[in-house]
């Protein structure tokens, strides 16, 4: 196959992109919009959570601990426990939300958390109705 002169010149057409508006976001000022349905942090509706530990059982990363609840919000919560997630282990597969019988555990689209100590990434899901 012979290489032609026009094949050397045609790529220069890319130069016209200089006049286009940049595609990147100007980060701190402009932030990307949260997408509905994104698998971010957990939320747990404590008024419906029954503390059954199905989420703990299905989690293959053993990221979920069941810990004692301070204030009982749901009389049907027989164990008095609620899930807490170790975000050093979680892989956001959302199997825990799939198996939740009352559908109280959910993922929200919020997803940014920075910390300088990895041992602090034990996350108690926010109590939000879904």
């Amino acid at each position: 196959m012979k290489i032609q002169l026009k094949n050397s010149i045609a790529p220069l057409g890319a130069l016209k992109k200089i006049f286009e508006h940049p595609k990147t976001l100007c980060y701190p000022e402009v932030k990307a919009q949260n997408v509905t349905g994104y698998r971010g942090f957990h939320i747990n509706d404590l008024s419906t959570c029954i503390g059954c530990a199905n989420c703990q059982d299905v989690c293959m990363n053993e990221a979920i601990d069941m810990i004692a609840i301070d204030v009982d919000k749901n009389p049907k919560n027989n164990s008095g426990c609620i899930p807490r997630i170790d975000y050093g282990r979680c892989c956001w597969c959302s199997l825990c939300t799939d198996v939740c019988p009352p559908d109280s555990l959910k993922l929200e689209s919020e997803c940014i958390w920075a910390d300088d100590d990895s041992n602090r990434f034990l996350y108690l899901p926010k109590d939000k109705p879904c």
Partner: peptide
Amino acid sequence: VEYDRLFFDNASFQKRAI
């Protein structure tokens, strides 16, 4: 089409790849 012009038909890529 733009990729064709910029990359696949680009002489410098062809010279290296053929």
